[in-house]
Amino acid sequence: MADGIGIASATVDDVERALTPAPGTVRLRRMLGHRGFVIAGVVLALIIAMALAAPLVAAHDPYIQDLSNRLVPPVFLEGGSWAHPLGTDALGRDYLARVVYGARISLLIGVLTALMSGIIGAVLGVSAGYFGGRIDSVICYILAVRLSMPVVLVALAVVSLVGGSLTAVIMVMGLLLWDRYAVVMRSATQQVRALDYVAAAAAVGASTARIVLAEVLPNVLNNLIVVATFEVAHAILLEAALSFLGLGVQPPLPSWGLMIAEGREHLLFEPWVIIIPGIALSLLVLAVNMVGDGVRDIAAPENRN
């Protein structure tokens, strides 16, 4: 009986069509009407602005140690001062500066990883979905192999081979985290490929490259963007975990995961050492995920039904 609603809304759509704006206008309007997206977008924009303007936000250098000022509590706790608004860590480094510069690392890793794995996954997924047949089988096999490799163990192996570094973390994650892109892009491409406008372009004599780039890609790009936002969050969390385990970013770089790892010993008496980078990490990941949710709602392709 559920399709009763479908029939009804189709009728409504018919009458509404005369007033339908262009797809771009629709998207902008939906974007501004989506409360979660707007709030998360503002939070994310603030974090990005903070990371970009890090030297202006933080008065101190995140690497300069001051062993006479170790574990100074933040300003809102007893014994804190405005000199170090978020206190200092066990080596006397300014915590605010480390959190702000840490945002740079998290965002850098999130974006670069998503970019690398996004390109790999999109190319594989679109090829598999568009060409099908043997190419699809081969790509699905590669995907199955990739899914059988645990990211943490691969990272462990790489770190023990080439040593931990920012580049190593980005390379490992960028080369491994393309699975979800490939799966989503493959099925989205399969759907679009079966539509008549792709057949029409082929019948017009358009080359395969033109069909893929001009007809298929623009119609599956929404899915890519949605996956990419979630994968940015995924990469940020994974980096924190790897760094926490010592397999990721190496000291003295200010990574939030590393900061949590370094603060472990002080958990009992100075819990803020862990709580501050923890909150920063959660806030960023939450904002990115909420933006991803919003993008998914907003980018729902106009003519899916």
Binding site: P23, L195, D196, Y197, A199, A200, A201, A203, V204, G205, A206, S207, R210, E215, P218, N219, P301, E302, N303
Partner: peptide
């Protein structure tokens, strides 16, 4: 040789303007 398809809802690329859709053969 050219086709005309059944469903005008799936035979036009939703991301392109009418001018772009009709001029595709000319461009190709």
């Amino acid at each position: 040789v050219q086709p005309i398809f059944q469903d005008p809802y799936s035979s036009l690329n939703p991301r392109q303007t009418i001018a772009a859709i009709v001029s595709l053969p000319l461009r190709v």
